[in-house]
């Protein structure tokens, strides 16, 4: 049997990233400030996690404007959605396996 621990995605091995992905699963798109409020973390911390997810094609970034202010919104990519679902399935398997 394959050890489910190998199916856990290293990319999601952080509470912040799990939070970002969970929020994006429930919402079509979320902007930076909404994410910051939800996760209660600093700008720099959030930005670095978002960058890592973006570099791995898990999320896509859209930059726009509301009036003169920049408005950066984030969306889940197809790849990202699939990867996150697999990650949750692996987590479930691990819970079941040790029961």
């Amino acid at each position: 049997m394959v050890n489910p621990i190998n199916q856990l995605n290293k990319l999601f091995d952080s509470r912040v990233r799990l939070g970002i992905l969970s929020a994006l699963m429930m919402n079509n798109s979320i902007n930076f400030n909404e994410l910051k409020e939800l996760l209660e973390i600093t700008d720099g911390n959030l930005a670095s996690h978002l960058k890592a997810l973006e570099d791995n094609n898990i999320i896509k970034v859209e930059k726009g404007f509301i009036g003169r202010k920049t408005n950066t919104t984030y969306k889940l990519t197809k790849v990202g959605e699939k990867a996150f679902k697999e990650h949750i399935e692996a987590l479930e398997k691990m819970i079941k396996a040790t029961k």
Binding site: G19, S22, A23, M26, N27, T98
Partner: peptide, 22 residues
């Protein structure tokens, strides 16, 4: 046990964030 606990914590976090964001 700790692995199981970690997975449970992660699932719990995911659920909480899904609720909070929606």
């Amino acid at each position: 046990m700790t692995e199981q606990q970690q997975s449970l914590d992660a699932i719990h976090d995911i659920k909480k964030m899904m609720e909070r964001s929606s």
